[in-house]
Design a protein around this nucleic acid. Structure first.
Length: 474
DNA sequence: GTAATCACG
DNA sequence: ACGTACGTGATTACA
């Protein structure tokens, strides 16, 4: 076969493990979006025997400008993920059993109190039964909110509003969060410890998300609790492999906002990051037209919500929902926001135009997401595609950056024959099991690669720390 | 199997 | 005039 017309695909050199979800065929389908039609092949070696397939792949890579993404990111990453899955992470069984006892005593107390008030035992976990108790037996609300299937809504949001007036609802909320922690983490994680390695081996899916992020299953180690006091106890159970090791956590500070600052080229937002300002405080100062040192907690909190909203494709309605501000106040804040960061509005409109014209949007490494509904006559579908057009380049570029960092860090570890291992990726964070003797060099390698592997128009900043468990390392 | 809920970035 | 934030996975209840 003549190779001159083809890119030199190094297929096979990376895909070391049979049966992986992240095989070459899946990567082509999801990340490169190559439709192989009826020509699907299971065994990667086959591609060498089917010149027409080989040609089809190369034609796609060339047309879509995706050779680099396949060759420099997704293929080598599959090998890094394989090693992370193989390595696993240690769970402190004694500690999680202590936590189990504490939680079980507490949840039992809650149940006694709840049934005292309801005067009848019912299944608190059943939204249907709970709705009937709350809104019929106890009649806590005159016109209760319903879900789309006609059931009473008992979501956290609905219940939190009710809880101000009725303490009973607080008991339900506490029971729910405790039940969640018990079933999803305390009971389930110990069952997932591998018999041979005594460690938990998650599986990373490289070919699932629409934006280029990874996902994690069996168990999902990308949603280990951290936001609440009790949740933090769960995170504390993840520990280094032994007393000669420490867990190291490195996370990007505000990577998505830095990316949108860079992509939009907005001078004001770029300046905030270049001057190492607190972005939410800076935003509050601009939006509310006050000095940085005059920003109060509430203003910063609202500015933070707007900053996130911008990344998601904000509307005045969505903002007022999140903040409790009125619709008109929200509109005013958003108007001020775009006056403060004028290029951002322009950038968002440009992304939408780009998607309408080309049918897709792309990240800084040319990862593409196709948005066929961007030209739909259905306003709901169209606005959804427009929000995707804004959000995907931001979320996806962050995924590009951390993926390339992971590959570089892995290469560096191999080159220096370090014992320390990359264990987990949580979207903007990497977790390592670090040999204490290597801590200084590992910190240097990790920070340097995460901050400098891909340059954008503002500095990337990494917070790094280590300790005897995942909670204190953070 | 789907809906509802809630854990994370 | 419309309905409303982006991306995931696990658990439980229930049709």
């Amino acid at each position: 076969m003549k190779m001159n017309n083809f890119f030199d695909i190094k297929i096979g050199s990376y895909l070391a493990y049979p049966g992986s979800r992240n095989d070459f065929n899946s990567i082509l389908k999801s990340n490169i979006q190559i439709d192989l039609g009826e020509d699907e092949f299971e065994d990667i070696d086959n591609v060498y025997y089917y010149p027409e397939l080989f040609e089809k792949i190369n034609k796609n890579l060339k047309e879509k400008n995706l050779y680099h993404l396949l060759e420099e990111i997704e293929n080598p990453l599959s090998n890094v993920l394989m090693k992370m899955e193989y390595e696993g992470i240690r769970l402190d069984l004694d500690l999680i059993n202590e936590i189990k006892e504490i939680f079980e005593i507490e949840i039992h107390k809650l149940e006694v109190k709840i049934f005292e008030i309801s005067e009848i035992e019912f299944n608190i976990a059943s939204p249907k039964q709970l709705g009937e108790i709350l809104f019929e037996k106890l009649a806590l609300e005159s016109k209760p909110k319903k879900t789309k299937t006609g059931q009473y809504s008992t979501s956290e949001e609905t219940l939190s509003k009710l809880a101000k007036k009725h303490d009973f609802v607080n008991l339900i909320l506490e029971w729910r969060s405790l039940q969640k922690l018990l079933t999803t983490y305390v009971y389930s994680l110990p069952k997932q410890i591998d018999q041979h390695s005594n460690r938990i081996h998650t599986e990373f899916n490289q070919t699932l998300t629409t934006t280029g992020r990874l996902s994690s299953i069996n168990p999902n180690l990308q949603n280990i609790p951290i936001r609440t006091k009790k949740g933090k106890l769960i995170r504390k159970c993840f520990t280094p492999r032994d007393k000669n090791y420490t867990l190291l956590c490195a996370d990007y500070s505000q990577i998505e906002l830095r990316i949108i600052a860079s992509l939009s080229g907005d001078t004001n937002m770029k300046a905030a990051f270049i001057n190492n300002e607190d972005i939410h405080t800076s935003t509050a100062a601009r939006v509310f037209n006050i000095n940085i040192d005059e920003v109060n907690e509430e203003q910063r909190r609202n500015a933070k919500i707007v900053n996130f909203g911008i990344i998601y494709g904000v509307s005045a309605f969505g903002l007022s929902n999140q903040t409790g501000l009125s619709r008109s106040e929200s509109k005013e804040i958003i108007d001020n926001y775009f006056k403060s960061y004028p290029k951002l509005k322009e950038y968002m409109n440009n992304q939408i135009s780009f998607a309408r014209e080309k049918g897709y949007v792309e990240t800084i490494l040319k990862r593409k997401r196709y948005l066929p509904e961007i030209n739909s006559r259905n306003a709901i579908l169209r606005s959804s595609a427009e929000r995707n057009a804004i959000n995907t380049p931001v979320q996806g570029s962050a995924a590009d950056i951390i993926k390339l960092s992971m590959i570089r860090i892995d290469n560096e570890f191999e080159k220096r024959s370090l014992k320390s291992k990359l264990l987990l990726q949580v979207h903007d964070e990497l977790v390592f099991d670090v040999d204490l003797a290597e801590i200084d060099i590992v910190k240097e390698i990790v920070t340097n690669n995460m901050e400098n592997t891909i340059k954008i128009d503002v500095p990337l900043k990494v917070d790094i720390g280590n300790g005897d468990n995942w909670l204190v390392a953070h």
